[in-house]
Structure formats: structure tokens, C-alpha cells
Simulated assay, not measured.
Amino acid sequence: MGSPLGVLFANFFMGMVERKVFSTTRKPPIYTRYVDDIFVLVRDQRELEDLKTTLQRVSGLNFTTENSVNGQLPFLDVKIDASSQSFKTGVYSKPSNPGLCLNGNSECPSRYRKSTIDDYVRRALSHRSDWNRTHAELDRITQVLVNNGFSNKEVQNVINTHLDRWYRPPTDNIQTGHKITIFYKNIMSSNYRADEDAIRKINGKYVRPSNSALKVLHPPLPGYPRDSEFT
């Protein structure tokens, strides 16, 4: 297995290469990089080959290039469409992707099942440039998840939760700047929810803010008033 510092070293090395290359070579109007994957906008094929040759000469590495087809090009898991006057983006899935993920009938904690759906939905919302592409991706991932044993209801509940958060306007009566995060060490077990509930009850009973006007920032527990005196 590689070193956990591998990504850091790769970024450091490529940063030094880019500094040297672009000190003597014109930098393209769009040049972005993730570790060793580069997305670049050039005027023609000759400019692309010149940039590739210079990067190889300075770094000692071999680079491969992939040109756009009909103005479309995948970059990592993002599909970029430059066929019009602006860039449009969506989720890219390789043609060889079999559409497999964690099975919905697996014997695992429920939070793992939910996080699998969460990852698909978050990517659909973050990678899209318009809602038509978002809805198309949500339909696609729903089919993928159903094929892997998840129920339609389970998938739709997670999608609705994310969309509600996406559209929710800012609330004026929420106090900001006074949130305190309490960290605790726990072990992986199926009884983790009981531990979390116990900690919330302890907070609700014994923790008081210095400012009595502050309100609770999360839903109250059963048996506690809505305007609990902790945050």
C-alpha cells in the first residue's frame, strides 16, 4: 500500500513543476489539476502538444492526453459539456461501470446504508449545472440503488431530505456564533444510538449556556421542553 503522504508529495511535486513550466510558457486561460489529472483549455492541438512536451521535459514523467468529443469531456467523475457558449456539468459514470454498490439487504448498521444513498444524492446535487441534469441523475441513481436491494421509499426519503435542506431559506431566529461541539470517544457497536441518546440527555439535564437567551440548536428529546437551556 502507498504512503498516506503520497497525495501531499504528488501535489508538492506537481506544484514545483507548474511553477517552473509557467515561468517561461504561457499559461492556458483554464488550467486546473487534481493530483496528477489536469483539465486544460487550449486554442488548438499544437498548443496542447507543446504543453505536454514541456511538462514531460521538466517533470520526467509521461503524460497522456484525451481530447473532447463534440465539446464533451469527462474529468474525474464530472462530465463537462462545452458545446455551447458556457460550461455545463453533470455526473460522469464510466461505460464499464456495472452499477454495483453496497447491497440494501446487507447485514450492516443502518447508517452505512443511509450513507451509501447520501453519497449518490450529494454528488447529483454538487456536480450538476442545471436542474434538468439533476433530475435525470436522481432518476438514474434511484434505479441503481433499487437494483442493489434498496427500496424506492428509502431512496426517496433521503432524496427529499437533501432537497429540503437545499431549498430551506435561512432562519433568522437561529443563534449563530455560540455553537459548542462536544467530542467523545466511542467504540463501533450496534448499540451506538443508546450511547448518543445518553449523552444528549446528560447535556439536556446538566449543561447550561452562560447566556440564558440562547436556544437549543437541535430538536429536543422526548420529555424535554422545546426551548431547552443548552446549546
Rank of each mutant, 00 (worst) to 15 (best):
M188T: 02
F150W: 01
I202F: 15
E137K: 15
V207Y: 13
Y192I: 15
H127F: 15
I182V: 12
G223C: 06
L138F: 07
F150Y: 11
P170H: 10
H178S: 11
K185V: 03
S210F: 13
R208V: 07
N211E: 07
P222R: 09
H218G: 00
R165T: 03
N203I: 08
R133G: 00
P170D: 09
G223N: 02
P169G: 08
T142M: 08
N186S: 05
H135M: 13
L145T: 00
K153F: 05
N186H: 07
I182E: 10
P222K: 06
L145A: 00
Y206L: 14
M188K: 05
A124L: 00
G149I: 02
V216F: 02
N191T: 02
A194S: 15
V155P: 04
Q143I: 05
F183R: 15
G177K: 04
R208E: 01
Q143A: 04
R226A: 09
P170K: 10
Y184S: 15
G149A: 06
F183K: 12
A213I: 04
H162V: 04
S151Y: 00
S190Q: 01
G204F: 00
V146N: 00
I182R: 03
A136F: 14
N173T: 11
A124M: 01
L221R: 12
A124T: 11
Y167L: 07
Q175I: 10
G204E: 09
K179A: 12
Y167T: 08
G223L: 10
T176K: 04
R123S: 08
E137D: 15
N147Q: 06
L138T: 10
R123A: 05
A213C: 07
P219C: 11
S190D: 08
L145G: 03
I174S: 12
N148S: 01
Y184C: 11
E154K: 00
D197N: 10
D195V: 12
E154R: 03
K179N: 14
D164M: 13
R140A: 04
D130A: 14
R168I: 10
Q156R: 11
H178V: 06
R133Y: 00
T181Q: 06
R128M: 09
L163K: 00
T181H: 09
K201S: 02
L221Q: 13
V121P: 05
N152G: 00
I202T: 13
T142E: 08
T161E: 04
K201N: 04
R208Q: 01
T161I: 09
R200I: 03
T161W: 08
V121R: 03
S189C: 15
D227N: 14
K185C: 04
N173E: 10
E196P: 09
R122N: 05
H127R: 12
S151G: 13
P209S: 12
P219V: 06
P170M: 01
N211V: 06
L217F: 03
I180D: 13
N186T: 05
P209A: 06
D197R: 14
